[in-house]
Design a binder for these strands. Sequence first.
DNA 1: GCCGTTTTCGGCCCGACTGTTTTCAGTCG
Length: 577
Amino acid sequence: MNNQQLAEIFERIANLLEINGEVVYKTLAYRRAAESLRAYPREAEELYREGKLTEIPGVGKAIAEKIEELLTTGKLGFLERLEQEVPPTLLELLEIPDVGPKKVALFWKQAGITSLMDLESAARDGHLRRLPGIGEKSEQRILAGIEALRRRSKRMLLGTVRPIGLRWLNWLRGLPGVREAELAGSLRRWKPTIGDLDLVAAADDPVAVMEAFVHHDEVVRVLAHGENKSSIELSNGLNIQLWIQPQAKFGSLLQFVTGSKDHNVRLRELAQRKGFSLSEHGLTTPDGKELFFANESDLYQALDLEWIPPELREDRGEIQAALEHRLPDLISPADLIAELHSHTTWSDGALSIHEMARAAKARGLKVLAITDHTHSLGIANGLDADRLRQQRKEIDAVQAMLGEELTLLQGAEVEIKADGSLDLADDVLAELDIVIASLHVSLRQPREEITARLLRAIRNPHVDIIGHPSGRLLPNREGADLDWEAILTAAREENVALEINANPSRLDLDEVHARRAVELGILLSINTDAHSPADLELAEYGVSVARRAWVSAAQVLNTRSPAEIRRWLAEHRHKSG
DNA sequence: GCCGTTTTCGGCCCGACTGTTTTCAGTCG
């Protein structure tokens, strides 16, 4: 059982306890433990073997014992008893907007409602309004919420929402009276999946701006409409929230709405220890004086903190690091000067080698590796040894045309086959400048089998990079069930780089494993896996994962000069071969 | 249920918006 699965169980416990009316702080404790497990760089299973489970923040004696029971028996008596008491089907009701644990408990205990269907028919028949605190409007709101829930495909991809966010931001900045506006929330933190889109603005006349916002022609539903905060829904189910304050408070507002919630809770605790109260309006001193902040960095400074990049604001130690002046010097998109994973018409790419090279050059890249698929991936028209040798001639010809400005490398994204062997013989791999090995098929093998497959690839002396290591596809396909400690240990021993694939539906390695990898001294490689020139622009999404993993430029192969990259490849092969 | 440069017991963040309550509870971020 991995950390993700453990986290889901504790989240479930928290929700059930909350519906059952348990004291808030107990449910909070389970929720915090769940969040902590999701972010923790090492597997609980391993910590358990070392007797160190309580080293995980938010895990104390009681939760450690539950983790132990889950790891050793695969079950949890406490949860089973809880589910006897509280029907687990109630959990789906929590998904409805504006329905929380109190209302779920009300529906359940006073109307015998235990499922989404029960609730829907009760609302439709006008029975809900008989309950205390529920009127006709609440009934309609619940029906609309159930509709919205069905329409909406949970969280959307960062790569889908960001262009929408930038478009709305642009529109907002063009409105009269808007002095400043920014993206906020999980979008500003570059979270791989986005729930709601948050926008903040500084405006002289908030009422007029809010009016324009809720009457924007893409709005299908107004969810809330206030002076400081409004919320609307688009036809694709995406919710957008707009927050407005006067310019003088813009910094505090931006900080507050950027979150994360957990980061803000930590920050408020810190403010309290210093004698302040912190809200989206600013700091309040004990004698009731209010301090406003037009700039976010001034707010952090007032708390004796360095400004914390939004990508780090997840309550993963960033506040402590900021206090101690040891925040990492994060990589930025401009640091990337090499693309080491790309496809052309030789396999399933859209452009010829020459066209891809021109696109790479136009983006200012210094190195482009052509890494087409290999032949066992028949669907992608993969290359065999003969076609690779033909392709080499074309690459050489294009290099001759390009001159020195862009260095082309010939590589391959070689398939790790279901039996663990590579799709090209060692002598063919040896002729290539760079070799990426990737899993595409049989991703659902049991942990031992699929881990062994990947380990065999890592140990092959010709393999330089492991491409999209887990094989996950957001938002729904889980990655392979890998023994990460074994993979990371082997990668470090063999000096093999691990890819952060920048495609928004991959972002693989994820931030948790990327952070663990650099802690162990493993080199990362951020690549777009470009199949077309537009794909090259996705690099910033890969960089965002690296930033959320506290990664610096020096820890990424693609920030190095062509000569340094060639040297690394040569040394790497020499050492292994 | 967790945790400790106020504490091993007694705390554990803050405000806007909505609907229904005639003064506030629930939800959300």
